[in-house]
Amino acid sequence: MLDQSYYDKVDEIIKHYGRKASSLIPIMQDIQGEYRYLPGELLTYVAKEIGIREAKAYSVATFYENFSFEPKGKYVIKVCDGTACHVRKSAPILEAIFKELGLSPKKHTTDDMMFTVETVSCLGACGLAPTMTVNDEVHPVMTPEKALALINALKGEGA
């Protein structure tokens, strides 16, 4: 059960966009922006508040890859594995990050909620390959060593 403050924040977001079905996606984006994921309880609440069926809200949320029902860490790391990044050795970068953080393709977020690691098909920075982002900040021409140095710097910030 979520704290009342979550619902109060969602009420503010709904008020901003209006109580209409066409507001669903921007409302979900703002909720995820606020909490780094989309709590199911809030999606159910939003559906009721804007007058759509809960199933419709869930079908929209599951259609778009951007929405996540799982809590994400403070730092969301996206490692590109698109063609340009893959041929320039993005796989060893991902392996080094997984090893450093004790993660795997099945476990994406550290227990302390500090890091979430995801692979993506393209970050749109092919000329800078291999590329990764941390909270949407692009880090170009990465190597496993540079990635680990960045993670260690972030660990220092988070302490």
Results as ranks from 00 to 15, higher is better:
residue 1 M to D: 10
residue 1 M to P: 06
residue 2 L to E: 09
residue 3 D to N: 15
residue 4 Q to T: 11
residue 7 Y to Q: 06
residue 8 D to V: 08
residue 9 K to G: 01
residue 9 K to W: 02
residue 10 V to C: 02
residue 11 D to V: 04
residue 11 D to E: 12
residue 12 E to V: 06
residue 13 I to R: 00
residue 15 K to S: 12
residue 15 K to T: 08
residue 16 H to E: 11
residue 17 Y to H: 13
residue 20 K to N: 12
residue 21 A to N: 09
residue 21 A to P: 06
residue 22 S to Y: 00
residue 23 S to R: 00
residue 24 L to V: 00
residue 25 I to S: 00
residue 26 P to C: 04
residue 28 M to A: 03
residue 32 Q to D: 02
residue 34 E to S: 13
residue 35 Y to N: 08
residue 38 L to Q: 03
residue 40 G to M: 08
residue 42 L to T: 04
residue 44 T to Y: 05
residue 45 Y to T: 01
residue 49 E to W: 00
residue 53 R to V: 06
residue 53 R to N: 11
residue 57 A to S: 06
residue 60 V to I: 15
residue 64 Y to I: 11
residue 67 F to V: 07
residue 67 F to H: 04
residue 74 K to M: 13
residue 75 Y to D: 07
residue 76 V to Y: 04
residue 78 K to R: 15
residue 79 V to G: 03
residue 80 C to I: 12
residue 81 D to C: 11
residue 83 T to F: 10
residue 83 T to Q: 09
residue 86 H to N: 11
residue 89 K to H: 12
residue 90 S to V: 09
residue 91 A to S: 11
residue 91 A to K: 14
residue 93 I to P: 02
residue 93 I to R: 02
residue 94 L to A: 12
residue 96 A to V: 06
residue 98 F to W: 15
residue 101 L to Q: 04
residue 103 L to P: 01
residue 104 S to G: 10
residue 104 S to N: 10
residue 105 P to H: 11
residue 109 T to K: 04
residue 109 T to F: 02
residue 113 M to A: 08
residue 114 M to T: 15
residue 114 M to S: 15
residue 115 F to V: 11
residue 116 T to N: 06
residue 120 V to S: 07
residue 126 C to E: 10
residue 130 P to T: 07
residue 136 D to Y: 08
residue 136 D to K: 14
residue 137 E to S: 13
residue 137 E to N: 13
residue 138 V to L: 15
residue 139 H to C: 08
residue 140 P to N: 07
residue 142 M to A: 14
residue 143 T to M: 05
residue 144 P to D: 07
residue 149 A to S: 13
residue 150 L to W: 06
residue 154 L to P: 05
residue 156 G to C: 09
residue 156 G to A: 15
residue 158 G to C: 09
residue 159 A to N: 15
